[in-house]
Amino acid sequence: MARANILPTGVECPYGPEELIVSKTNLKGRITYANDVFLRLARYSAAEVIGAPHNLIRHPDMPRSIFKLLWESIQAKKEIFAYVLNMAKNGDHYWVFAHVTPTLDSKRNVTGFHSNRRKPDPVQIDRVKPLYAQILAEEKRHDSRKDGMLRGVECLSDVLKSKGVDYDEFVFSL
């Protein structure tokens, strides 16, 4: 799949507030399940996404730091809520309010991850965009992608500290 060649179109994919986007991944973040809403919005077939990395739908304007926070949370057996900008196969985009949880076996070992996503209120997206733009700018200031991501995490942490909230409180305050 030529994901690297996909450029954002600036066109938003329409979907309803009653629709639920669902996907599951294995421990390495490869998709093991995607519902019809996921497939329709992402404009991929099931055959194209099953086994593919979930970052297949990552939009280039989405800070990598947010995904680092997400992965750290779910690998620590915690749930996380996050606003995420996704990109479809044709370059169109769609915002989601994601609830991501680890899937645990009977011994509480993480066996995979499950994400339910809904359409966020446009006001919430208008509030999160400036923060994400600030973090993304910080990430891009560094030559090394790893250094950029780590500086992005620091930027997010500094912003949250200045507001006197943690990430969860911030997300639910929008």
Score class of each variant (00 low, 15 high):
M1H: 12
A2L: 13
A2H: 13
R3T: 11
R3E: 12
N5G: 14
N5K: 14
N5I: 10
L7G: 06
T9L: 09
V11W: 07
V11A: 11
E12L: 12
E12I: 09
C13P: 00
C13S: 13
C13N: 10
P14G: 06
Y15H: 05
G16T: 12
T25P: 05
L27K: 14
G29Y: 01
I31D: 03
T32R: 07
T32N: 04
N35C: 08
A42L: 00
Y44E: 03
A46C: 10
A47L: 09
E48C: 06
V49S: 04
V49Q: 06
G51V: 08
N55C: 08
I57T: 08
I57Y: 01
R58K: 15
H59S: 07
H59W: 04
P60H: 08
P60F: 08
P60V: 07
D61S: 13
R64Q: 13
R64E: 11
R64W: 13
R64M: 14
F67H: 04
K68H: 12
L69V: 10
E72S: 12
S73E: 09
S73D: 08
I74D: 02
Q75H: 13
Q75F: 10
Q75Y: 10
K77D: 09
K78M: 11
I80M: 02
A82C: 10
Y83S: 01
Y83C: 02
V84S: 03
V84L: 05
V84C: 04
N86P: 05
N86A: 07
A88N: 02
A88L: 00
K89Q: 12
N90F: 07
Y94K: 03
F97E: 00
H99S: 13
V100F: 04
T101F: 05
S106I: 12
G112R: 01
F113R: 03
F113G: 01
F113L: 04
S115T: 14
N116S: 11
N116K: 10
R117N: 06
R117I: 05
R118Y: 10
K119L: 15
D121H: 12
P122N: 07
V123P: 02
Q124M: 13
Q124G: 07
I125W: 02
V128Y: 01
K129F: 06
L131R: 08
Y132D: 02
Q134T: 15
I135V: 15
L136Q: 05
L136C: 04
E138W: 02
R141M: 12
D143T: 14
D143S: 14
D143Y: 10
D143A: 15
D143L: 14
R145S: 12
R145F: 12
G148E: 00
M149F: 00
L150A: 11
L150R: 09
G152T: 03
G152M: 06
E154Q: 15
E154I: 09
E154C: 09
E154G: 08
L156T: 03
D158A: 15
D158M: 10
V159T: 12
L160F: 06
L160T: 01
S162A: 14
G164R: 06
G164M: 08
V165R: 03
D166W: 05
D166A: 07
D168H: 12
D168S: 14
E169C: 09
E169V: 09
E169Q: 15
F170V: 03
F170W: 15
S173K: 05
L174Q: 03
L174I: 07
